[in-house]
Amino acid sequence: MAKKAIAATLDGAVMTAEGLSYKGVILEPIVEQCEGCERVIPFEDAKYCPAYAQPARKWAHGVCNFATHVRAGVDKEGKVKVNPLKASKRAARGR
């Protein structure tokens, strides 16, 4: 299955004293973890994320769910992390 390209522009964005104003929202510049993401858009001398206004807060508690360059985490045993609630429901279905 082919991946869709994420195409977005910041048409109508205006640089203000608070930051970049886009559709009534003040966007903050991206953080280091956002580098490589397909959603990042350069505007003047900085890069911004149109999906989330405060990228640093998205990365504060783990991986940003909008990130296109990061995949699901793998635990120490090499297995993909699974939600325990979903795992218990799957096990109950198999009785």
Rank of each mutant, 00 (worst) to 15 (best):
residue 23 K to Y: 12
residue 6 I to A: 14
residue 39 R to E: 05
residue 3 K to I: 08
residue 18 E to M: 09
residue 36 G to P: 02
residue 76 K to H: 11
residue 66 F to P: 00
residue 82 V to C: 06
residue 87 A to W: 11
residue 78 G to A: 07
residue 34 C to K: 00
residue 65 N to R: 01
residue 93 R to S: 10
residue 71 R to N: 10
residue 32 E to W: 09
residue 39 R to V: 11
residue 44 E to H: 10
residue 91 A to V: 12
residue 31 V to A: 04
residue 80 V to N: 06
residue 33 Q to N: 09
residue 8 A to E: 13
residue 44 E to D: 14
residue 22 Y to K: 02
residue 7 A to N: 11
residue 23 K to W: 08
residue 54 Q to E: 15
residue 75 D to L: 07
residue 80 V to D: 08
residue 22 Y to D: 04
residue 45 D to W: 05
residue 65 N to D: 09
residue 95 R to L: 10
residue 18 E to F: 06
residue 33 Q to V: 00
residue 26 I to N: 04
residue 33 Q to C: 01
residue 48 Y to I: 03
residue 94 G to K: 15
residue 63 V to F: 03
residue 72 A to S: 14
residue 5 A to W: 10
residue 52 Y to K: 00
residue 70 V to F: 03
residue 39 R to F: 13
residue 46 A to G: 07
residue 83 N to L: 04
residue 14 V to H: 07
residue 78 G to I: 09
residue 72 A to N: 09
residue 62 G to Y: 01
residue 2 A to V: 15
residue 41 I to T: 10
residue 59 W to H: 04
residue 14 V to P: 03
residue 8 A to G: 12
residue 49 C to K: 02
residue 83 N to R: 01
residue 10 L to V: 04
residue 15 M to L: 15
residue 45 D to K: 11
residue 94 G to M: 08
residue 81 K to H: 15
residue 81 K to N: 11
residue 22 Y to E: 02
residue 76 K to M: 13
residue 18 E to L: 08
residue 21 S to V: 10
residue 20 L to E: 03
residue 59 W to G: 00
residue 16 T to F: 07
residue 86 K to V: 11
residue 51 A to N: 10
residue 92 A to V: 10
residue 90 R to Y: 07
residue 82 V to T: 14
residue 65 N to W: 02
residue 17 A to F: 09
residue 58 K to R: 09
residue 42 P to C: 07
residue 4 K to A: 12
residue 16 T to P: 03
residue 67 A to R: 01
residue 46 A to P: 05
residue 73 G to L: 12
residue 67 A to I: 02
